[in-house]
């Protein structure tokens, strides 16, 4: 049975799009049939992070409005045959998305895929509420930082009240994904710890993605980090998180970079 999963956060710049791409790819790498849907109308970026920016012909709004059929708008990943992208429109007004229209597209996607990952825009406006509207599960991307945690709390409130599931008296299954985590800074008391964030948000943890050069490097070349450098710390964290989404029980660890001697030496000097 298909699962609709929204990747959301409230705050911008915390890593929603990166995480959608990485989790989508990781699920596809595990053999699941996955579509990632960009809900950020006017500011689409999922196509860029996935390296499909030059292959976009039709988009979500075209499908919602009936201008294009769903199969015409879906873009198949060149590296992973199980991974597909439904891009957002770059130009059209975001009011072109309607609740019913999105519902129809999600229903159609449910018939074709195992996982439908909805990349939410930042904020709590229409785009964000439509992205979460039909979700069965939610990944709340949070940085260990006060403004991000506050916004995540707000988003959790919306997931518990504004979704179709919530309106039916059911629960959207929620997971917190902590990104840009720096274990050194947390140990020195300069950054909220994992326990702090989880205690405040009272939501189970899906994974801890360490702050890493590999994330930037992957988006630079348009490849999800789990494909671009599968043995890197963030990739391993995303691959583990995807297994947890599939229901496997994987021991939680803060993945650390495997650093060479020179790199370690240089870093100590710089600090």
């Amino acid at each position: 049975m298909a699962k609709v999963l929204v990747v959301t956060s409230g705050k911008g710049g915390v890593g929603k799009t990166t995480s959608t791409a990485a989790l989508g790819a990781a699920l596809a790498q595990a053999g699941e049939k996955v579509v990632v849907v960009d809900f950020d109308v006017g500011l689409r970026n999922l196509d860029l992070v996935l390296g499909a920016e030059r292959r976009v012909v039709f988009d979500l709004i075209n499908v919602v409005q009936g201008v294009a059929k769903l199969p015409q708008a879906l873009i198949r990943d060149k590296r992973l045959e199980n991974l597909w992208l439904l891009p957002a429109s770059q130009t059209r007004d975001k009011d072109a998305l309607t609740d019913e229209g999105v519902g129809r597209v999600i229903d159609e996607l449910r018939e074709k895929f195992d996982w439908i990952l909805c990349d939410s825009p930042a904020g709590i406006e229409r785009g964000a509420s439509l992205a979460m509207r039909y979700a069965d599960e939610a990944v709340i991307v949070t940085n260990p930082e006060v403004s991000s945690v506050r916004d995540s709390d707000r988003i959790i409130g919306m997931l518990d009240s504004k979704t179709v599931k919530a309106e039916k008296g059911e629960q959207v299954k929620k997971h917190v994904l902590i990104t840009r985590y720096d274990s050194g800074r947390a140990a020195r008391g300069e950054m909220l710890s994992i326990d702090d964030v989880l205690e405040i948000l009272a939501t189970p943890l899906l994974g801890i993605i360490p702050e890493s050069q590999d994330v930037l490097r992957a988006s630079n070349v348009g490849s999800p980090v789990t494909l671009n450098n599968a043995s890197s710390a963030p990739a391993r964290a995303y691959l583990d998180a995807a297994r947890r989404l599939k229901g496997e029980s994987v021991t939680m660890a803060v993945p650390v970079e495997r650093k060479g001697f020179m790199e370690r030496l240089l870093r100590r000097r710089a600090a």
Binding site: E145, V146, V149, R150, D153, R154, G157, A186, R188, G189, E190, M191, L192, S193, D196, I200
Partner: peptide, 23 residues
Amino acid sequence: LSRRTASAPVARERLQILLAHER
């Protein structure tokens, strides 16, 4: 040194108070 610069406990306390109100 860290005891002097540890700001995370302050962050945690501020968040807890704020979110209790907002919720």
